[in-house]
Design a protein around this nucleic acid. Sequence first.
DNA 1: TGAAGTACTGTAACCGGTTACATTCGATTG
DNA 2: CAATCGAATGTAACCGGTTACAGTACTTCA
Lengths: 325, 325
Amino acid sequence: MATIADVARLAGVSKATASRTFTRPEVVTAETAKRVRAAAEKLGFVVNNAARLLAGGRSGILALVVPTLDNSFFAPIIAGAQIRADAEGYQLTVVVHPLESASEIPAFERLRRQVDGLVVLAPRGSDEFIRAALGETPAVLVDREIDGIPSVIADSASAFGALVASLIAGGHRRIAYLGGPAGSWQDGQRTAAARAAATGTDAHITVHGPYDSTFAAGIDASASVRDGAPTAVVPYATALGLGVQFAYLSAGEQPPLVSSERAIVRALGKEDTPAIDADGHELGRTAAEMLIDRIGAPDAPAARVRLDVVLDLGRTLSSTPSSRI
Amino acid sequence: MATIADVARLAGVSKATASRTFTRPEVVTAETAKRVRAAAEKLGFVVNNAARLLAGGRSGILALVVPTLDNSFFAPIIAGAQIRADAEGYQLTVVVHPLESASEIPAFERLRRQVDGLVVLAPRGSDEFIRAALGETPAVLVDREIDGIPSVIADSASAFGALVASLIAGGHRRIAYLGGPAGSWQDGQRTAAARAAATGTDAHITVHGPYDSTFAAGIDASASVRDGAPTAVVPYATALGLGVQFAYLSAGEQPPLVSSERAIVRALGKEDTPAIDADGHELGRTAAEMLIDRIGAPDAPAARVRLDVVLDLGRTLSSTPSSRI
DNA sequence: TGAAGTACTGTAACCGGTTACATTCGATTG
DNA sequence: CAATCGAATGTAACCGGTTACAGTACTTCA
């Protein structure tokens, strides 16, 4: 396994120069750099990250922390972050960690020391807990806001509010909101927005849940939904809504109007269904970008970015096919 | 940030003894170990993995490599592996990497050097490519077999074969198999098993695909399925099958019999539906266990483990509620 | 009682990079 | 032409652990 000393020897330079060729190319002559790179290439040199981290304090690794992976919403976020990280020369690793109880902190602490920064999806733990867990490590929160920590969120709450308002305007009077996982920050935001949209109207909104963001949970939820006989259902997650509809359909009943996401609506050809689409890909990409910026300037003020969420009302509710909130 | 030297000083021992307290506790007096641990506790000492890796050649990190995360089948595998790794004092990180083209090798190479071993989910790349990519790093394949590399697979193919056989025995003559992602090893196995079960009978099995293992792909697949008017559908993945049924139902048609998984069947109360359940959790757990064993004994012969997959035929097809293959 | 173990613990080298500081050398300038 | 300066490179210390080897003290057994 070639080390930088091997590369330096072959290139006829010192270890220091060889190292600088990779870490600060601008201080090395173009000619020298070329020789070093050629030598590295020939020897199949790959830097030893452990050594680099130990000596230089940076590893070139970013970690993305998710509470669980059984939620398909995370996939595009992770993909987006990964691409951006790659492009900037960082490696991204995904760590499943709930960030909820103090007993898990040592493991998390160890993780923190190995990486240059964290993209954190922590829907549930308390603000205090998360702030403490992150410590001084550069971090960017996704889909959650906490004072003093940079964050990117998909502004789904606005879309949910607007959707509920449109449903009411469209004549719906009994609307069910199917809540996400217990304690979820986004769920809190969405519930509030949905409720706010209904206040002052004669429409009634029922909040069900908490539910996992899964198809099976949707099936389970259908019993509770049926009791209220809503004419429209707004689920926290697509899979949840699909489960509800499936349960209705497979019982031979006509399901109420259930909002979904465009890809599904399009595949089904049911253009009269409203769809809410957060761009997970962009969410991940932005988070990675912000994190890399922050690593470079840890003392800059913590930015809060809110990305638009597309609400497509479908034909029934509006003549405008799609509106950007 | 406390180092082991700090701990050693506070405990009144040498760095070496302090280090041994953590790496090989059996060679240290219980009394000494207690003092060292107390000191570590008081100082909030957390080992620096970079230093540990550099000096000792082991990092205490296992990586689990998946091609993508938009497949819910991976979630329990990852969870299972994580729990086992944790229990053995390893940290598990998830890396999304397709392991398909040579251009991605450098990034993978860097990864390999940071970890003690790899749990690899690589459904698609060629045997040669994967073998080369893994190099000398201890690795365990999940749901795929390659000569010379240890592996754990869920023996789904057998279950698929048995299911098709039962369907035929139950009177089905037109059966559709919905294939998984292009080039998937498991898909090859399952297709072969399904076909084999039909040969020599007067039943006809149609193979559709490839499809992603998603609900949306199932909706898209329904058009193709409908053409063949099968009486039973065996999808590569649960989500795929649900998508097909959903499309039928939402078009107001009665879907054919579609095999699913127990959790869904139970939630729906449709006990006449056959279900195939691979225990992803156990798959992950076993893989992590085998990997840790292999790290300890890299030259042991490569084991091939096949885990049973539960085939529950449902009421219609069999009087036995569940059979273990 | 002394030799040979045995069980711990300590000393110091080493892992493979990074970087502060020293050095060299050609270009610039008074 | 000597003094000054800056760019490029080299020297060597250091990051924080692990571990081979040496040393010490306490048993054990002839």
